[in-house]
């Protein structure tokens, strides 16, 4: 068992402190640490798997309507899958959701297919008016998540925390051999 990364513990602590007891997710590798930490340390948080990221936002919207404080955990590529639900449901109905975005396509990326959406992530969030902040260091994770939750539940808007690859993959990935 590898040690759980500090950033993932911080994300979970921040969500829990903000009153989130529901997290809807589509998994990726870095988020697996968040899910494991939640299952182990925050058993009162219900984790709900969605088949696709847009669906996750629909479920989260329903959870909020039902009186819960939802978080959505997705990879940046999947936020692209979600934009219709985000822009035609979550934003116009003013539904607060804390969005944890595991970044692909930023510095450290090795897969060209991940780069275009990763590079577009911040401009897209800006264009649709979703406030966002990056977790710049593992020690910062809890504070950033709590701030995002304050923005979300205070202003009734979704708010996003971006978790960069330099945090989630601190070791340089091994490249395929050129041999």
């Amino acid at each position: 068992m590898s040690e759980r990364p500090a950033w993932a513990a911080g994300v979970c602590a921040g969500l829990h402190a903000a009153g989130c007891r529901d997290a809807v997710y589509v998994p990726d590798n870095p988020l697996s640490h968040v899910l494991a930490e939640m299952r182990e340390r925050y058993r009162d948080v219900r984790l709900t798997l969605a088949t696709r990221e847009e669906e996750a936002f629909g479920i989260a919207a329903g959870l909020y309507l039902g009186g819960r404080r939802p978080a959505v955990l997705v990879q940046s590529s999947g936020l692209g899958n979600s934009l219709n639900a985000v822009t035609s449901l979550v934003i116009p109905y003013q539904i607060p959701i804390v969005i944890i975005v595991s970044m692909r396509g930023d510095i450290g990326e090795w897969n060209a297919a991940q780069v275009p959406m990763g590079r577009a992530m911040r401009p897209i969030l800006d264009a649709i008016g979703i406030p966002h902040a990056a977790i710049e260091s593992p020690a910062d994770a809890e504070r950033i998540v709590r701030l995002a939750a304050s923005t979300a539940f205070g202003t009734r808007m979704p708010a996003a925390c971006l978790v960069p690859r330099r945090i989630t993959s601190p070791a340089a990935p091994r490249m395929p051999s050129a041999s």
């Binding site: 529901d22 809807v24 219900r46 709900t48 969605a50 847009e54 669906e55 936002f57 629909g58 479920i59 989260a60 919207a61 329903g62 959870l63 909020y64 309507l65 039902g66 009186g67 819960r68 939802p70 639900a85 449901l89």
Partner: peptide, 14 residues
Amino acid sequence: GMASSIGLGIALAK
């Protein structure tokens, strides 16, 4: 497409 997902969220919450 989201109506069933919204309904699921409400059903889980309540």
